[in-house]
């Protein structure tokens, strides 16, 4: 067991974990943050995307011990005082989810891409989301939602 100290969605945690525990397991099974989901076995789907110190990572491909001393934000930490994050709101308004399974990862990656490029073209949005798969194939509305969140100037 290894002791880790992490901040997740603004709260500090100190836990003993097996080194082999994946960050996504830690979030879901230890902290009960089941908003972050597991969609594949190959690190291809992006459903498990969270932010580690503010940049997006696939939490199925990071060990919990690697997050020791760092800050994690999950989809559950985005809303403030009951108010949705603008990207969450845009997904809601643009019908950017069907079954919703890819949505947590899509939202976390969309926030990351808008942080790097506040006014992305459609092409840039599609490239920024290349590591996130939607099994319902609802990509058009996802792209629309990101455009709407960006202010829709392009």
């Amino acid at each position: 067991m290894t002791r880790i100290n992490v901040t997740v969605d603004g709260a500090s945690y100190s836990d003993d974990v097996e080194p082999r525990m994946l960050l996504v397991q830690y979030l879901r099974e230890r902290l009960g943050k089941t908003g972050t989901v597991i969609g594949c076995d190959t690190s291809n789907c992006g459903a498990c995307t969270v932010h580690l110190d503010g940049t997006s990572v696939k939490s199925c491909n990071v060990l919990a011990v690697q997050a020791d001393g760092h800050e994690v934000t999950t989809v559950e930490g985005l809303a403030t005082d009951g108010e949705l994050h603008p990207v969450q709101q845009a997904f809601h308004e643009n019908h950017a989810l069907q079954c919703g399974f890819c949505t947590p990862g899509m939202i976390m990656q969309s926030i990351d891409l808008l942080k790097e490029n506040a006014d992305p073209s459609e092409e840039e949005i599609r490239l920024g989301l290349e590591g996130n798969l939607c099994r319902c194939t609802g990509y058009h509305n996802i792209v629309k939602a990101v455009q709407a969140a960006a202010g829709g100037s392009r």
């Binding site: 690190s43 992006g46 995307t49 580690l52 940049t55 997006s56 990572v57 696939k58 491909n61 990071v62 990656q109 990351d112 891409l113 920024g128 290349e130 590591g131 996130n132």
Partner: peptide, 9 residues
């Protein structure tokens, strides 16, 4: 190379 999340790590 890969996707943004993988490139971050």
């Amino acid at each position: 190379l890969a996707d943004p999340q993988v490139r971050h790590r």
